[in-house]
Design a protein around this nucleic acid. Structure first.
Lengths: 345, 345
DNA sequence: CGGAATGATGGTAGCGCTACCATCATTCCG
DNA sequence: CGGAATGATGGTAGCGCTACCATCATTCCG
């Protein structure tokens, strides 16, 4: 931690490069940002000077002068959640070779926090914003509408996008998962849900639609909690559900953590899976296919959502508006042992 | 996406606030950064003007003028890894009420990538840097030595810190875990390791030290791969290890993902845990205590490492040098069913 | 009670870039 | 072949802040 002489601290600036290359500062600036607009000979001289001095542009000065920071603002509701970790990884991977940096923040599933962070992000004038979900508060929505940059809403799709959207239907996911269990022969299929954010609510709605269509819905089959999801919680919710309704013969879990908790509890209590209880999860984490028995789940394309959100934003920054502003990446039902009920019954 | 009129785009600036409050711009600047140096009456006027205009300081202009960005640069080797996700969460949580932003990047376990990102970060003049591990390349080490800001190396401890350090000894973790298995009565204890980054190597070294001390070491007990860790991989490594050495009676897994893969494979192959095979993991993810049987693991304090790294950096920014620059947060051995071998044997 | 110390406030210049406009050379084409 | 279009380069000003220094009022104390 050596003290810096007043301001700057001796790092080379664009003026140093210009001097060494024998050109104007603005030409250096151009050579770095729009090389095709500078003659090849000057470009080479400049490149050499840059390397000789180890020059790196100051992103802060750049942002101030151009009224636009080379930053992607990314808002996610959680950082521990595996699902968002993968979305974020997709975003980082897609941006690592670009000049853009990522500004990530955690809303902790709070709309107010989202507003505050949005304000903060906008004070930097980001190049693009990526936000999670479609249930922004009115104030947040207004901020996004006037963001002055491309905005991508991720993880879900719905009507009326701020700008662009990429995700899938959680309602359909819940419906398909539940239908699968009904078709597999389960009748008293419970729903286990933690946290119950808007996406969880939609999965529950899908579950309910499927159960009602089959004439099987019973509100006592639904067990939810606002508590954050965990494997431990899956065990606890399952115990509650069984206590409430001993005739339960299957559970559709809001996510794989819960499903895993149920699976472990079944082992511990010697409940046969899939014979006595069927289990379906959501998200299809890596471990679901290795579990014993392997666990049926809805595979979602998290990493791909992150990647494509960046691609869409990058295109929009480049001035290309996609013909379709809403992209449905869908999901896949992975049928596994945990719902393979013997045909006889 | 409305086009912005040239520069600025109409957002209120510090000059607008100053005008409205009837003070000089510099006084506004001070009222925001060092309120105690401004009289109460002016402070109130300024506060009111700020609110009326919805003024937010431009972080880029701030960084440029003060030659110091309010940014914490954070380098982690992985974003999917649960362990780093929690460290990162600790960092974000500790910083969310401060003026500091987080600049996070993923080195993908590459030293060269770390150098490149460090260069990039330093061009922003961050307020502090948090880097993972103690095995920086020479060039990276040089960059850190001259960073001109507090530097915290996290996750590990060792001699010769760049500046500050917080973590624990992976060697000791490996040794303690292995000793526990030996004491529990296991003799042919295998080591399963994925990725084998420096921290994994040290856990392996700890394992080896314990086995050698007990006269039990055999190189054929060690099964490692450079492949990224996953539950699936745990299963595969375990199968390999068993094929190589059918007399195996326990495994110490480099991390909990692998341990879980082993557990599931034991279920599938009807291998009794802990009777026939004992299992110990590393990190103690939430699910280890819920698993059936519950899995012995080394609990590490990831979230706390993230939090305290920030606390240390913040103190250093404030000019307080800790008397102890190296902080060992230790770890806890969690004994569970997976290594509770019946006493008789 | 008068000079020195202290505290509050403000003006000026500058941080390192890029937007905007100007200039000059070269190419184009009727 | 001459004026217009095009392309390459550069100068100037300004982005929105804060470091540095100056000024003035107030307090302190022998």
């Amino acid at each position: 931690m050596k003290p810096r002489t007043r301001r700057g601290g001796g790092r080379p600036t664009i003026a140093d490069v210009a001097r060494l290359a024998g050109v104007g500062a603005i030409t250096v600036s151009r050579a770095l940002r729009e090389p095709e607009r500078v003659s090849e000979s000057l470009r080479k001289q400049i490149q050499q000077a840059v390397e000789e001095l180890g020059y790196l542009p100051d992103p802060n000065a750049r942002a101030l002068a151009s009224a636009r920071a080379e930053v992607f603002g990314v808002l996610v509701p959680s950082l521990t959640n595996n699902v968002f970790a993968e979305v974020v990884r997709g975003i980082y991977d897609s941006l690592s070779d670009s000049p853009f940096r990522v500004q990530l923040a955690n809303t902790h599933y709070s709309g107010l926090e989202e507003e505050r962070l949005l304000q903060l992000f906008l004070s930097q004038r980001p190049a693009a914003l990526i936000v999670s979900g479609i249930d922004q508060t009115e104030a947040a929505r207004r901020l996004l509408d006037n963001a002055g940059c491309p905005v991508v809403q991720i993880m879900e799709i719905g009507p009326d996008p701020v700008d662009m959207m990429i995700g899938f239907s959680h309602f359909e996911g819940g419906r398909v998962a539940t239908n699968h269990m009904i078709e597999a022969g389960y009748r008293r299929v419970g729903f286990l849900g933690a946290r119950m954010d808007p996406r969880s609510q939609r999965r529950l709605a899908g579950y309910r639609a499927a159960m009602e269509a089959a004439g099987l819905f019973d509100p006592r089959l639904v067990t939810t909690t606002p508590v954050l999801s965990s494997v431990t919680l899956g065990r606890d919710l399952f115990r509650d559900a069984l206590a409430k309704m001993p005739s339960l013969d299957g559970v559709f879990c809001n996510n794989d953590d819960l499903a895993l908790g149920v699976l472990f509890e079944c082992h511990r209590a010697s409940i046969a899976v899939p014979q006595t209880i069927g289990i379906t999860g959501f998200n299809d984490l890596d471990m679901m296919q290795v579990a014993f028995p392997s666990v049926t789940s809805i595979r979602t394309h998290r990493y791909e959502i992150g990647r494509q959100a960046v691609t869409m934003a990058l295109a929009a920054i480049g001035g290309e508006r996609p013909e379709n502003r809403i992209k449905d990446l869908g999901f896949d039902l992975k049928r596994r042992e945990s719902t393979a009920r013997p045909a006889d019954r």
